[in-house]
Amino acid sequence: MVHRSYSFPILLVSLLFVTISLSTLNTQVPLWLKHNEFSLFQIGLVGSSYFVGNLVGTFIANWLISKFNTRKTYSYVCLIFALATLGLSLSMDAYSWSFWRFLIGVACAVTWVIVESCILVTGSAHNRGKMLAIYMTTYYLGTVFGQALLRYFPKDVLYFGLVIATLMALAIFFILLTHYKLPKKKKSSFNLMPMLLYKPARLGLMGCVVAGMIIGSIYSLLPAYYSYLNYDDSAVANWIILLILSGVVAQIPMGWFADRYGKLRLLFAEMIIAIFACLLLITHQFTIFATILFGATIYTVYPISMAWACQTVRKQDIVTMNQTMLLVNTIGSLIAPAIIALVMDIGGIHYLFISFVVISMYYAALLAKDLFINKRSKDARSI
């Protein structure tokens, strides 16, 4: 694979434009739907369709890369992203919006597979973790920038789409300046089952599912949740900024804690803290503090789980494991918003954070069981 020292920062610049576009859409689409009196279930359905697109995009990414090469594939999916955003202005029924969001989901998944694979293949054992940390920080900063810029975007769907199309054109321009060429894979090389059944990576993969379920629901339902609490659009964006920025700030410290105290222990502690934060948010107590805690824990679950799962496999299997993690993360993101939205429709909007508590408690129980088994094994060996 051809690698140039300047390709990595240029790749991140291109990713930044994609992420800003996605961030603004993730908040604005639920608000558009809420303002047009769509039900919470319909909002959740549109949100889930985006993650169905992620799922499909994960499967077809290798085929597209092999057929069109890395930079052309990236450029084509950015074009699809732009056209699908413009397509949102063509109609205002849930099924049409679900279709356009599905296409955007496909485009985003292919983009992530390309970016993460470029990093994993070009990185060495000494700098891969650092490159992934920079990648995750760039991704979350792009999300924050998107929320901050949202107030300056036009509220009309068509003009909003034109702004997104401009950002996608910039993303294409920068990716064409790089020299990335991913190796072509055989059709049988993307075999998920060995990775899914690989026991040492089990809890890491489960962490990716949990992160997908909660973060997918945040993007699909949290803007509508704040809107039901009578926050205006600017206030909604500010709360999302606080949540995601907390995750950005926590990336490096949490990585240090994971290296020092172990990924398993840190993930367990994060689940307990997330449960505590959700309980505060349910009761509307210390909401700023609780939002910071929740963002700092939930947005670091995926990279820690990813690092845990990747360190259990051989180097030649890292890219496949990465795609498997993206797949299970997407499945979590796909399932949770629709189910939680239905629960919220029936029981009330506060069931959003109650659902997060249930998910976090389940993962915490799995982690506690593994910690207990590991402790007993160590005690047995010391006798």
Score class of each variant (00 low, 15 high):
Gln285Leu: 06
Thr291Ala: 12
Thr291Lys: 06
Met306Ile: 11
Pro303Tyr: 08
Ala296Val: 08
Phe286Asp: 07
His284Leu: 05
Ile288Trp: 14
Cys310Trp: 07
Pro303Met: 05
Ile292His: 01
Leu281Lys: 02
Ser305Tyr: 10
Ile288Pro: 04
Cys278Val: 05
Ala290Val: 03
Gly295Ile: 10
Gln311Lys: 15
Ala290Leu: 11
Thr287Phe: 04
Val313His: 05
Leu279Phe: 04
Ile304Gln: 15
Trp308Glu: 14
Gln311Asn: 15
Tyr302Met: 09
Ala290Cys: 07
Ile282Asp: 05
Tyr302Trp: 03
Thr300Gly: 10
Thr312Phe: 01
Tyr299Ser: 09
Ile292Cys: 13
Ile288Glu: 14
Ile304Lys: 09
Leu279Gly: 03
Ala277Tyr: 02
Ile292Phe: 11
Phe286Ser: 12
Trp308Ser: 15
Phe286Gln: 13
Ile298Pro: 02
Thr287Asn: 05
Thr300Ile: 12
Phe294Asn: 04
Ala290Ser: 09
Thr287Val: 15
Ser305Ile: 12
Ile288Gly: 05
Gln285Phe: 15
Ile304Val: 15
Phe276Trp: 05
Arg314Gly: 00
Phe294Trp: 13
Gly295Trp: 13
Ala277Gln: 04
Leu293Thr: 08
Gln285Asn: 11
Phe276His: 01
Leu279Trp: 01
Ser305His: 15
Met306Ser: 10
Thr287Met: 12
Ala290Met: 10
Val313Ser: 05
Trp308Val: 00
Cys278Trp: 04
Tyr299Gly: 05
Ile304Arg: 11
Ser305Val: 10
Pro303Gln: 14
Leu281Thr: 04
Ala309Met: 13
His284Lys: 14
Cys278Ile: 03
Gln311Leu: 11
Leu279His: 02
Leu281Gly: 01
